[in-house]
Amino acid sequence: MAGPRPVPPAGRRDLGDRGDVLALLDDFYRAVLTDDVLAPVFEGVGADVPAHLPVIADFWAGQLFGHGAYRGGLLRAHQRVHGEHPLNQGHFTRWLLLWNRAVDARWSGPVAERAKAQAARIATAMHGRLEGQRSTPQEVLGASAPRLPVVHQPHSH
């Protein structure tokens, strides 16, 4: 028998659909594009984030809700970026920090926690692949390999 469900903090609910994913991505990329560590990468490769938001939303909706609309090449796109502006562990750690802040600012619940955990697995797999590790992202994501830390920030009120 399951225990009582945790009550989300006031003003926050769990991620529930693709619309919530789009709102999360909007918050997240607003932070990324003004971040001292990550903004130069996006600027350096001429990333058109608004044009890619629907594709990124398809990816995350698939990760969180099982919708199968994503048809992109996640690794291939990041390999191109890595070729132009090498991505290191610091980039992935910062990405996770900003992702977790964006999730925690508006959402709380099992899907929000899954979004943070999945982001950590993806960052670990992506970093490994870009550094030339032989395992595929699917192998890393399914393994209990060491992962980059999920960084939690205290909430400010």
Rank of each mutant, 00 (worst) to 15 (best):
M1L: 13
M1F: 09
G3M: 11
V7T: 15
P9D: 13
A10I: 10
G11W: 14
R12M: 14
G19A: 15
G19F: 10
G19M: 09
V21N: 12
L22F: 08
L22N: 05
L22C: 06
L25W: 07
L25N: 05
D26V: 03
D26Q: 06
D26I: 05
V32M: 07
L33Y: 04
D35G: 02
D36L: 08
V37F: 14
L38Q: 04
L38C: 05
A39N: 04
A39I: 01
A39Q: 03
E43M: 08
G44Y: 13
A51R: 15
H52T: 11
L53R: 11
P54L: 12
A57V: 09
D58N: 11
F59H: 12
F59L: 14
L64W: 15
G66V: 13
H67K: 10
A69S: 14
A69Q: 15
A69Y: 14
G72L: 13
L75A: 02
L75F: 01
R76Q: 13
R76W: 08
Q79W: 14
R80Y: 10
V81Q: 12
H82D: 13
P86Q: 13
L87H: 07
N88L: 15
W95L: 12
W95R: 08
N100S: 09
R101I: 10
V103T: 09
V103Q: 06
D104P: 06
W107M: 05
W107T: 00
V111Q: 07
R114Y: 03
K116N: 00
Q118L: 04
Q118A: 06
Q118M: 05
A119H: 00
A120F: 05
I122L: 10
T124C: 03
T124Y: 04
T124H: 02
M126A: 02
H127F: 03
S135I: 00
Q138M: 08
E139V: 03
L141G: 00
L141H: 02
A145F: 03
R147N: 05
P149G: 09
V151P: 01
V151S: 06
Q153V: 11
Q153I: 08
P154Q: 04
